[in-house]
Structure formats: structure tokens, C-alpha cells
């Protein structure tokens, strides 16, 4: 009796293990199968024609051309088209603030470059900061589900909101404070829902996406479009691109270069 019960439990245990291992081998989610996908067929997914492409997208911010009006326009258009909730303005909930791009003092944007005798212009002008789309992003290293990832084809650091578990490890890892967490349903503080971009849900992290959705339609990022020439956007790996020409002519700096994250956003000071 004792013996047979033990054997039964053993067999039951092994079969559960077997089923588990088997399903791991087969793959946990079954793949969508069509006849075409079984043979070696032409690719089922491709980019939209007319999409802007690059090997590594980058941005130069010319702080000499920045002013308060442009800063405001850039933040407004960005937050409007991306359905970024305004918890501070609408509900006074400072703790739940979400921002993708925002103006800040030189001493905050460039903490390690700050000193007593910074030029008057830099003391007065606020500088736009946003996700740096680092070439060596620490947030991507930290994410336990690859919900945030660097897109291989063009170097964008993006969020997959469907996959994010909201552990906020990426926020701790980001040395630029570029990420925000949805502490509550963002719809509570979106004045007018923009139909062309999906708002997020509570419990996920979000940040600037370099307007990936606009690039796919063949348009430049919205902040660049309204920047009156203060922002230059282009392919950092194309030596003939505008952005490379600007970088060749000016001595631009990045935020916290000493951390080795290799930001793709450069500043002309």
C-alpha cells in the first residue's frame, strides 16, 4: 500500500514534469499558421512604404536657438499627440507627473558640467531634456521582460506597453530621469483624447519614443517640426546626413558622457 502510493506519486510527478517540459519545447504560445508560413515564403511583415529609415537615429539640440516659447511649443505638441496625461495641471497630483520632453535649467540638465561661472545665457535659458535613446542603454539591460528594448534596425529605445510588468527597474537604471510611471489611469488627466496614438494603461512605464509612429509615416518627430530649426534630426551613421554635418562643425556634448551610455541626443552649448 505504502509502496504503491509512493510509486503513484513518483509517476504522477514525472508526468507533470514531462508535460511541462514538452510544452516548453513546443513553445508556450502556438504560432499563427498559414500554408505560406510553413514553406520558406516571402516575409509576412514589412515596413510601410515611405517610412523614414536610419541606422541610428539621433538629435542635435542647438541651445543657442532655444527659447521659452519654443520649449513650450515642443512640450505641448509632444504631450498632445502622444496622449501624455497632465496630472499636475489638471489634478494637482505632483507625485503622478508624466513627461516625455521638458525644459529644465542647465544646472539640472548638465549636473556634472555645472559651475559657478556658467554663461549668463545658459543660466537664463531652459534646455529641453528627453530620452537620450542611448546606444548602450542601461534601462534595456535592467528590464526583466525585454518590454523596453533597443530596436536593432534604427537604434531607437522603445517601450512595449503590452509586455511591461511595471517593476520600474528601468526608471532606477536611467541616469537621466527620462522615464515616468503610470501611477493611475492616464485617461483621468487627458483633456482630449488624440485618436491616432494609443494612450497607456495604469501600471506601465512610458517615455519619449522619438516619434517612432511619425517616422513610420515618413514624418520627422513633432518636436523637431515645431522647433524653428533648433532641433536637427537624422541618421548618426550616415556621414552625409545633416546631423553629421552639424556635429562635424560644432563641438556638441551629451549628458553624463562619463557613464558610457552613449546618448544619441547631442547639445550645442
Amino acid at each position: 500500500m505504502e509502496n504503491s502510493r509512493r510509486n503513484f506519486l513518483k509517476i504522477a510527478g514525472y508526468s507533470i514534469l514531462g508535460v511541462g517540459a514538452g510544452s516548453m519545447l513546443v513553445g508556450i504560445t502556438p504560432k499563427f499558421t498559414t500554408a505560406a508560413s510553413e514553406e520558406s515564403a516571402p516575409p509576412k511583415y514589412k515596413e510601410r512604404p515611405g517610412a523614414l529609415t536610419a541606422n541610428r537615429w539621433g538629435m542635435v539640440i542647438d541651445t543657442r536657438k532655444i527659447n521659452g516659447r519654443i520649449n513650450k511649443k515642443m512640450q505641448q505638441v509632444c504631450h498632445k499627440i502622444h496622449n501624455v496625461p497632465d496630472f499636475v495641471g489638471q489634478l494637482g497630483a505632483e507625485n503622478h507627473e508624466i513627461k516625455w520632453i521638458w525644459p529644465t535649467k542647465f544646472s539640472h540638465a548638465f549636473v556634472e558640467q555645472d559651475h559657478q561661472f556658467v554663461s549668463d545665457r545658459l543660466k537664463e535659458t531652459k534646455i529641453p531634456v528627453l530620452c537620450n535613446h542611448c546606444n548602450n542603454p542601461p534601462c534595456v539591460r535592467a528590464c526583466p521582460t525585454q518590454a523596453t528594448f533597443k530596436r536593432e534596425k534604427d537604434g531607437l529605445v522603445l517601450m512595449d506597453f503590452h509586455r511591461c510588468i511595471g517593476c520600474r527597474f528601468c526608471i532606477a537604471a536611467c541616469p537621466f530621469g527620462s522615464r515616468s510611471f503610470n501611477y493611475r489611469d492616464p485617461r483621468e488627466a487627458i483633456e482630449e483624447l488624440e485618436p491616432n496614438f494609443t494612450p497607456r494603461m495604469k501600471g506601465v512605464v512610458e517615455k519619449c519614443n522619438f516619434c517612432a509612429e511619425r517616422l513610420a509615416r515618413g514624418e520627422a518627430p513633432a518636436c523637431v517640426e515645431v522647433s524653428e530649426g533648433a532641433l536637427i534630426f537624422g541618421d548618426l551613421e550616415d556621414p552625409s546626413s545633416d546631423i553629421r554635418k552639424v556635429l562635424a562643425e560644432h563641438n556638441a556634448i551629451t549628458r553624463k558622457a562619463e557613464l558610457g551610455t552613449y546618448p544619441s541626443v547631442f547639445y550645442i552649448i
Binding site: T34, R48, K153, F161
Partner: peptide, 24 residues
């Protein structure tokens, strides 16, 4: 299998940036 297709579509857009699906 529409749910599997929707999953694939979702990953294609959100992760690969491929917004065109070529059907069979």
C-alpha cells in the same frame, strides 16, 4: 486563430516597426 494573428501584429508594430502585413 485571430488571437495569434493579433499577437503577431502587435509584436510586429510595437517591437519591429513593421506595419504592413502580407497575407497568404
Amino acid at each position: 486563430e485571430h488571437m495569434q494573428l493579433l499577437h503577431e501584429w502587435r509584436d510586429s508594430v510595437a517591437r519591429d516597426g513593421n506595419r504592413i502585413y502580407v497575407s497568404e
